[in-house]
Design a protein around this nucleic acid. Sequence first.
DNA 1: AATATGGCACAAA
DNA 2: CTTTGTGCCATAT
Length: 114
Amino acid sequence: MKIDRNLVYKLLKQVPKGKVTTYKALAKAAGNSKASRAVGQFMRTNPYAPIVPCHRVVYSDGRIGGFAGKTRINDKIKMLEEEGVMVKNGVIVDFQKHYFDNFSIEKVENETLP
DNA sequence: AATATGGCACAAA
DNA sequence: CTTTGTGCCATAT
């Protein structure tokens, strides 16, 4: 594999509440900017459901992924987004404002994953 | 082992 | 601005 899923999870974990990030940012932070789609897979089948805030990951253009309002878990997403992020018609309002990409690769080294 | 699918990104038309 | 087409990476069959 060309991307470390464990690393991706750790990185995503340090996204503060009320903030969001993109698949690309995660992939890039993990070391492979082309693995944006793979990140989506990590979210889809994430073994760390409550720990990894997969709902805070969105498209690079600010739109929510196919998980929100498309199939299920629509309520959870909305609730969590309303904690600090406003979503209008599947699009994040002031997306760049709550955008977070200041990932600390060093901090990840200390993090532990169950 | 090979193909298909999926919570994406980017360029071109 | 919206619609294809292509690239990329990890699971599921």
